[in-house]
Design a binder for these strands. Structure first.
Length: 329
DNA sequence: GAAACGTGGTG
DNA sequence: TCACCAAGTTT
């Protein structure tokens, strides 16, 4: 049925596939696993250039993750976002005793591994003849079959329908690459697509699937307060889901709390933070908080917004030294 | 099943 | 400038 389609796809993959991706060259399931988690909702470029290699250098094996502290894992995840992934990775490593399961069922029992990641790990790391279904494949399927509605269950059926059981590994990799480089969300390059002759959505690729109703992100106003006591500053480790386990400064309702240091805007996945930053020398007692010298703060894992706060603190400090003529440090 | 969950790149 | 997107999972 799909013989010609599969041939077209494989030919395209041979010539145009991203054959140099490191997690595609390794035969270490752990490395494939790490790549799959890092790549969730994250661009290849970011993972490749800033996170994949440093993480593996610090944690060469899953056992290293299992025997390390969450704070250490988080430090290597700092800046990558969706920090629950790091928490889940750490938890999963301990769940399986540092030995990654080799089948979809057992993989899915681990924290942070859903059906999509389980199939990807099984297919890429263990060469299981299973179709994958990620955002790339979904976009291709929606267009190929001209599917308007988003339906997870049906998409899996189509994923199995189009799957090439004779070349499972190459097929899956090829689908990822077509989705990432040809069947693009905004500007699909249909003229060079291996599916061109059979794609039902080609006349109007942007129609599949139907776009979600656009909602504007709410803006939340806060004050970020840097409490200072001599040469130390107060930070606490977050306990809730948002930016879980990351350290940060005090955050309160928007009003003046001392010396104004600047304004911080940070766009999160579901809201925008607008915060004024203050330096306070008022007495501050809270068991949640610990006191750090400025250089010690850098050793903690901080969110982007809190890093901006540190930068403003340093900038302000430096500016003051210039004014007082004090040029030490 | 909808909403929560980060950050950087892009048009 | 800003909405949208990029290899999803959990609640």
């Amino acid at each position: 049925m799909y013989k010609e389609v599969h041939k077209s796809l494989l030919d395209w993959y041979d010539k145009n596939g991203r054959h140099e991706l490191p997690w595609r060259l390794t035969n270490d399931p752990y490395k494939v696993y790490v790549s799959e988690i890092m790549l969730q909702q994250t661009q290849v470029k970011t993972v490749l250039e800033r996170f994949y290699f440093p993480f593996l250098e610090r944690f060469p094996t899953l056992m290293d993750v299992a025997t390390s502290e969450l704070d250490d894992v988080l430090k290597k995840w700092e800046g990558l976002g969706y920090y629950t992934r790091a928490k889940n990775l750490h938890n999963a490593a301990r769940q399986c005793g540092g030995i990654l399961p080799n089948n979809v069922h057992d993989l899915m029992q681990l924290s942070g591994i859903g059906r999509s990641s389980a199939h990807a790990i099984a297919a890429f790391a263990y060469r299981e003849p299973l179709p994958i279904l990620d955002a790339n494949v979904k976009r291709i399927l929606h267009r190929y079959y001209a599917l308007i509605k988003r339906d997870e269950k049906k998409l899996w059926e189509y994923a199995y329908a189009l799957f090439d059981t004779n070349h499972p590994f190459e097929y899956n990799q090829a689908m990822m690459d077509v989705g990432a480089t040809v069947c693009l969300a905004k500007n699909p390059l249909c003229t060079v697509c291996p599916f061109e002759s059979w794609c039902a959505g080609k006349p109007s690729p942007l129609s599949y699937p139907e776009s979600k109703p656009k909602t504007q992100k709410p803006v939340r106003h806060h004050a970020i307060i840097i409490h200072q006591r001599e040469n130390r500053f107060a930070l606490r480790q977050r306990r809730k889901r948002f930016l879980h386990a990351l350290w940060g400064f005090d955050q309160q309702e928007p009003k003046p709390y001392g010396e104004f240091l600047g304004h911080i805007t940070q766009h999160y996945s579901h809201f925008t933070l607008e915060a004024d930053l203050y330096l306070s020398h008022e007495r501050f007692e809270d068991e949640e908080f610990e006191w750090f010298e400025i250089d010690e703060i850098e050793k903690l894992s901080l969110s982007r917004a809190d890093h901006k706060a540190v930068a403003l603190l340093r900038y302000n400090h430096k500016k003051r030294e210039e004014h007082t003529g004090d040029s030490k440090s």
